[in-house]
Design a protein around this nucleic acid. Sequence first.
DNA 1: GTCGTTGCAAAGCGTTTGCAGCCTA
DNA 2: TAGGCTGCAAACGCTTTGCAACGAC
Lengths: 122, 122
Amino acid sequence: MQRQTNQRAAIEDCLHAAPHPMSLDELLQAARSQAPGLGIATVYRNLKRMVEEGAVVPVVLPEEPARYELAGKGHHHHFRCRLCHKVYDIPACIGDLGHLLPEGFRLEAHEILLFGLCRACA
Amino acid sequence: MQRQTNQRAAIEDCLHAAPHPMSLDELLQAARSQAPGLGIATVYRNLKRMVEEGAVVPVVLPEEPARYELAGKGHHHHFRCRLCHKVYDIPACIGDLGHLLPEGFRLEAHEILLFGLCRACA
DNA sequence: GTCGTTGCAAAGCGTTTGCAGCCTA
DNA sequence: TAGGCTGCAAACGCTTTGCAACGAC
């Protein structure tokens, strides 16, 4: 049976408050203000469980550490700024990608990564 | 100045012969048939240099080790089978993704990852 | 009081680096 | 022959795990 702890709540709160996917270090720093002394292993363990439960989705971009965001934000994609390296959520999507696949392949999911300059850096 | 070695040639040959992006271990195993005793550090060093030179492109997918493929294959994307975990090149693409971005953002590149079942597993 | 959770430190694991010897040019 | 390249092993950084203490229920 699962218990509600201060540490776990702090991590969840940070994910809820985050405007964009959080890296492990960002999460650790942010959650420590609510749960002082929070250890990094605890963040790893909780994130792992949240991902298994489907509450959190890992966001992986090339050349970057993994980030995490809450699931259930609706279908969206990600944009990374080449200069400031921030990652933004892009709520839009494009229709039917199935026609890209060769005959006989079945499409179940897709991920679109966009790269460029954000408004602040452009 | 750069020297041509048996090991480097073996790695290049394997990349040329590969029908899909190769992981480091695949590359090591394959290249050893042409360069026995090949060490993993040598594969890392050569791949790193090839990427810096722009001859090779890293292909990163979530939950998977990095793979590598030759650059200059033209613009394309990748498909990973959920069951056999093979990664296929998808030569197709979709036009203009710039309209997905918020006002003021500039799009420079994109990557599309597709997931599902390949023909053999479907 | 039980037992899931935590923090610390050690262990794992993939990648990088230092170095002596090798081999290309 | 000079110096770039290789293989080995050690070092490194990030993630996971073992374990005793803690604290939610």
